[in-house]
Nucleic acid binder design. Structure first.
Lengths: 333, 333
DNA sequence: TGGCCTTAGTTACACGATTAACTAGTAATA
DNA sequence: TATTACTAGTTAATCGTGTAACTAAGGCCA
């Protein structure tokens, strides 16, 4: 049988309250007793029972993390850094995968409302705002999605998608491309819209005419972007000097393959840029020029903010954190 | 305040014991009362408190999953399927990342010994056997590592690495390559050794002389394999018709890039095969020929076996599960 | 009818921690 | 010296379940 606080108390000749006090260090206990109690703990191999503590203090010591797809390197990197931070604390990371389905996301949220976690990190939720806006009775951090609800005390943390897109546009201009294509994601993905917006804005601001900007939408995956790209390249003439901003790295991979299979040389005949800078993008050929989405900062600050909220540290009250992005220049532009 | 079993009992005019009995359905309760109680539950929005239940029945309802690196697609896929299966049950998946460091793995195991999970899935542990062999007081499943401890009641689930390597060797033979190289992983990774063994065995069995087989070791990553490959290709003559089995996909990526940057045509000048068939391998050029490591089956059966052990289902007593592998033929061989 | 078994439900305690309320002893102050 | 204030502990209640032990009622049978 595992030793309990009672066993420790008996061995150290004190009351269980005193043992608990050294455990929680909320009340002063003389050094003498403290020592004796700690000694008793080690000889018995005592470890507090989390369930009992949970019940009493009404905490679960669990943090829920909901990602659309743990298989997506962008998300798995975020989770990695969330994990690193959470597991330094007393909390445990409980993982949920929504399969990028709004419906499944909703089910997970429903179940999480029942007090089975103390806090929640929602990564790139696809649920519409009204369904996301709930009466949470625990702190919530939403990652990689622009803030929509300034009234609630949800914290929003996301990279500056608009700026990233601007950077790509500026690079295209600097490199002397003449026509500009944006292949962005579904309309219900706010970041997809922001990237498109930033890209268009920057081009217009630099005197590019709207007729030289083409805009398309495709799911953020290889195949969708591959096929839309092959279509666009139907009878492409390299002297047109087009540059394509595909709003996700994996989509850019598809675009690159489509261009390569048309016999085009990148970046000479056509420029292609991505967004996210997933780990594997450094390995493909030609090296993908992209915008770094700061997974480390995203994951880390999400976890830190949440942990601070859980310890109701006033430093981290409700707010929005916008992280800066970096342009990663490789060979594809 | 959240309603408790007491509130439900009061509203339904029964004792808390009866409420508990319909909750656990361990004792017969008349349909009449059952209905009344369920009604009371829904009107109050009652949900049982997990911590209290945990304390009473001495379970945590948590399953620990330890992976070397959630960022590695092979592992994230496994986790995805573990999650799918676990979250269908009453259990929660608690994630730990060992950074592929034996030392950190040990620390995680140490903390898990303290009764904070009911079961454990260890994915591709790097800890040496003596440290892995502990006196667990909960069921354990070890994934992607050959069984070493038939005495304990740990369940081992892994793909047939040996056979996979044999398949690659046979393919090389069939395609008419004349010299054979194996770049496998570190010596302390059992699967690395099995792959090398299977490869060598199959070649020798087919009359290939040992002097035509070269064997090297490198970490399972892009850079290590890239550099060892460039070295091997120092003054390579395509008429030698070599074929290289790199024992991980990401390593094979490195080898492919090394070969390409030497101006070699794959598979004409040199054949390159990988192992794992990670998701992204389908996108690189040329398409990587590799062995599919069945992440879905690995994750799924791991979770199922563990859940069955937790419900002490006798069907799933201690044993070893070896999963079959498939050859994925693309263009690199 | 009386005794016994079964059944459906209740009472009351237990799980292992935290903590409010209390106590006894000491120090400080007038 | 008497009163108060603090200190360092203890006692006992509590969190929300599950469940062993009990009870009362009904059915069965000799």
């Amino acid at each position: 049988m595992r030793p309990t606080v009672k066993d420790v108390a008996k061995l150290a000749n004190v009351s269980t309250a005193t043992v608990s006090n050294v455990l929680t260090s909320k009340k002063y206990v003389s050094e003498e007793l403290k020592l004796k109690i700690k000694e008793a703990m080690t000889t018995l191999g005592y470890e507090p029972n989390i369930s009992a503590r949970s019940l009493k203090v009404n905490k679960t010591f669990k943090i829920g993390v909901v990602v659309p797809d743990i298989t997506n390197p962008f998300f798995s990197e975020i989770v990695k850094y969330i994990e690193k931070t959470i597991n330094k604390s007393y909390y445990q990371l409980v993982l949920y995968n929504s399969d990028d389905k709004a419906e499944k996301e909703k089910k997970i949220l429903d179940s999480l409302m029942l007090g089975i976690v103390d806090g929640l990190i929602l990564v790139a939720p696809r649920l519409e705002e009204t369904l996301l806006k709930r009466d949470y009775d625990f702190p919530v951090v939403i990652l990689d999605r622009p803030a929509f609800d300034t009234a609630s005390d949800i914290t929003f943390i996301y990279a500056d998608n608009f700026k990233g897109a601007v950077m790509i546009a500026n690079l295209f201009l600097k490199k002397g491309y003449k026509k500009y294509i944006c292949i962005t994601g579904p309309e219900d993905v706010p970041n997809a819209n922001l990237r498109l917006l930033g890209f268009r804005q920057a081009l217009l601001n630099n005197g590019i005419k709207q007729e030289n900007i083409e805009e398309y939408r495709a799911e953020f995956n290889f195949d969708a972007c591959y096929s839309i790209m092959t279509e666009l390249l139907q009878d492409y003439d390299p002297t047109q000097r087009k540059a394509v901003f595909v709003c996700s790295d994996i989509g850019a991979w598809g675009a690159i393959e489509a261009a390569k299979s048309k016999g085009l040389k990148i970046p000479r005949d056509i420029g292609i840029a991505g967004f996210d800078n997933i780990y594997f993008s450094r390995f493909i050929y030609p090296g993908l020029t992209t915008v770094e989405n700061p997974t480390k900062e995203l994951g880390q600050t999400a976890a830190l903010v949440l942990l601070n909220k859980l310890n109701d540290d006033p430093d981290f009250s409700d707010h929005t954190v916008v992280l800066d992005v970096n342009l990663i220049q490789r060979e594809s532009v």
